[in-house]
């Protein structure tokens, strides 16, 4: 464990996971908003919106995340000149958040849509029958019930998002897996311990997350 007792390495390790948490946090918020919006589009009566939602899901769910992140960096930034911060790391961070958000939104959308499908059609019919608009029906009657059945799948999406955040390392952000690569390069004698510490940190973050979401899903279930 001599690698992590060195304060320089330990700082790198901490700041690596701090980036992961920041990437996960910001992307989770954006992906959630975007994903719910896309799910609304996919169940809407407007064909153009349905088509847009379906296209989004098909494109981003079936493209490797590495490509999406690369496109954000080399396409949006290097080629099209979209710069989100003067600071190099922050620019990479925000480009990473964009990539992770648009990608994860596709999975959130499908989780929400399957949640909507667990709400009996009679609920939406009753809502329309008393004169609620499509948006009100979705917001007041369908989504609150769908949300409760979507909690458990959301846990899985969030866990995947946290692990996927390591891919932002490929565009140069010093997140955990990039830190790990550097540590291994300079400490060839401690490859296995370094792996175990990084993997163990992910597990320590994510196993409780899984249990938390399982517990919430049970607690908030709608009785029928």
């Amino acid at each position: 464990m001599h690698v992590f007792t060195d304060p320089k390495n330990f700082d790198a390790y901490l700041s690596g996971f701090l980036w992961i948490l920041k990437l996960t946090g910001a992307s989770a918020v954006f992906a959630l908003l975007l994903g719910v919006l896309l799910a609304g589009m996919r169940v809407s009566p407007v064909p153009v919106l349905r088509g847009f939602g379906a296209a989004w899901v098909n494109i981003f769910r079936n493209t490797p995340l590495t490509l999406v992140i690369f496109f954000c960096y080399f396409g949006l930034y290097s080629t099209l000149g979209l710069s989100l911060s003067q600071e190099l790391d922050l620019n990479r961070y925000w480009l990473g958040v964009i990539g992770l958000s648009v990608y994860t939104a596709a999975f959130v959308c499908e989780a929400v849509r399957s949640g909507i499908n667990t709400v009996p059609t009679g609920q939406a019919e009753a809502a329309r029958a008393i004169g609620l608009s499509f948006a009100q029906t979705l917001r007041i009657v369908v989504l609150p019930q769908a949300a409760r059945s979507v909690i458990a799948p959301f846990g899985s999406v969030l866990i995947a998002l946290c692990k996927n955040a390591t891919i932002v390392g490929t565009i140069g952000l010093m997140e955990s897996s990039n830190v790990m690569k550097d540590l291994i390069n300079s400490n060839g004698d401690a490859v296995i311990p370094i792996f175990l510490v990084i993997a163990g940190t992910f597990a320590a973050l994510l196993i409780p997350t899984g249990y938390l979401f399982g517990w919430l899903a049970n607690r908030l279930a709608v009785k029928r």
Partner: peptide
């Protein structure tokens, strides 16, 4: 629709 009340076979109360 708000002027036409409807009652369904399966009640459809908001659960």
């Amino acid at each position: 629709r708000s002027e036409v009340g409807m009652v369904f076979q399966s009640f459809n109360l908001f659960a």
